[in-house]
Design a protein around this nucleic acid. Structure first.
Lengths: 232, 232
DNA sequence: CGCCGTATTGAGCGCTCTCAAGCTAGGTGG
DNA sequence: CCACCTAGCTTGAGAGCGCTCAATACGGCG
């Protein structure tokens, strides 16, 4: 079992209560709870896992980005989620015991691998942590609730706002670098890449954002929120 | 704290591991774990809780049906979920500590009220139950994944199949009685009531189902599955 | 019986998709 | 350094699905 070396990402990782001592100083000794079995560095487009694989690990993203997807019966790719630094993959696979989807790195990505059985043992030892995992999975249920919005502008505006929240604040000011393609965004939002492109262009014309290939900056988040809420 | 009187629904309730003894006989003594604080009988259209209410309880449905919904910024009702006998409400509210939505009975409904803090205490006492709650919440994440399907027929076919699975098997053979309106189905599936009605009529013409007001029977579930999968 | 909420059915329109044609950026090789 | 290539992105034109609006039918209940 690899010792965890806490770093700047760890402090904003959803799993930090499981890895780090509550009183841990930021000069970062090894973690007390060795829940991380190993690290994995993934190159762009490298698979993290395949569907039907046995579910054995949670994966925490240290840096980088991952998408999960499946192919529907007619072969079309459906994106189920994007995951960024500090976020956890795996919750949705607990109940089947199998990976529900495929997961692939969108850019160079460092992953902490956390065996589920280690994790359960930790919960047994420290029942106080139970509440935290229930908190996290509860949160996961609401991810992407904006996908239900009726029209394309609403969904895309909500998606951009969601990204801004999930990226770290430094990136928010100067602009974010989207790790996924227009196609990916479209698959996630049930739109075509063309529609995504058209609406991004429209948002830019209306001075709501600047978009230059993968570089995105939100100029008027409040206005985007209005659109997301269906108020304009 | 009201003693739980296990009945036929309890055995197929998602929370039975928390209420009933593993070795419990079916002649049904009182439960050993008194997690149920009280029962509540709701009339049709009676509210179970309001949004922003403090999250304090899980609710298990003994019989009946409940819908959760919210009103978007422009005032339109958005249905977030339907819940039937044996299912649990509340998972999505753990992380905010507030009810995310409104919940209302669709028909006469009997509810078991399970205080969250009692529930957590039980988990501390019996850590083996941890795995079960993780299992259940994990399952909850995938509910309604068919909402992402592109077209109306796919979503509605998937919805009907989902209902058939969640209704008990006796009802499946003879047909199910839909507790919700066309409008509700539409709100849930991002369709208008008119579109729901038209497609149900089309399914009936094609001998996939019989539909007579609230009485629904699936004649060709396999064919519906094909439609849900986008294969026809 | 009459009322009212719900469901059905029809006609026309608009949003988003499809298909197709450029365009851009980045990489490769001469 | 530039010509070429490719993948991804943008932009346009036309088509179709599902929405809107409206009229009608149905059923439960007083």
């Amino acid at each position: 079992m690899t010792s965890l070396i806490p770093n700047s990402t760890c402090t904003r990782c959803q799993f930090s209560p499981f890895c780090l001592e509550p009183e841990g100083n930021s000069s970062c000794q090894h973690s007390v709870n060795n829940v991380v079995k190993q690290y994995r560095m993934l190159k762009r487009k490298e698979m993290l896992y395949l569907p039907k694989n046995k579910f054995q690990n949670f994966y925490a993203i240290q840096h980088g980005a991952v998408k999960t997807f499946e192919s529907d019966a007619s072969g079309k790719e459906v994106i189920r989620g994007f995951y960024f630094a500090g976020e956890i993959l795996g919750y949705e696979s607990i109940y089947t015991g199998r990976q529900a989807f495929s997961a692939i790195a969108l850019e160079e990505t460092l992953i902490c691998e956390i065996p589920y059985h280690h994790f359960l043992e930790l919960l047994q030892d420290k029942p106080k942590l139970q509440e935290h995992i229930l908190f996290l999975i509860s949160q996961r249920i609401s991810v992407g609730s904006y996908l239900n919005a009726i029209n394309a502008e609403q969904r895309l505006a909500a998606f951009l706002l969601d990204l801004a929240i999930r990226f770290n604040s430094a990136e928010k000011k100067s602009g974010m670098c989207l790790p996924m393609s227009r196609q990916d965004i479209g698959c996630y939002l049930r739109l075509t890449a063309e529609t995504v492109s058209r609406i991004l262009t429209r948002f830019q014309k209306n001075k709501l954002i600047t978009i230059d290939h993968k570089h995105l900056q939100l100029l008027q988040p409040d206005q985007l929120q209005q659109i997301a809420d269906g108020l304009s």
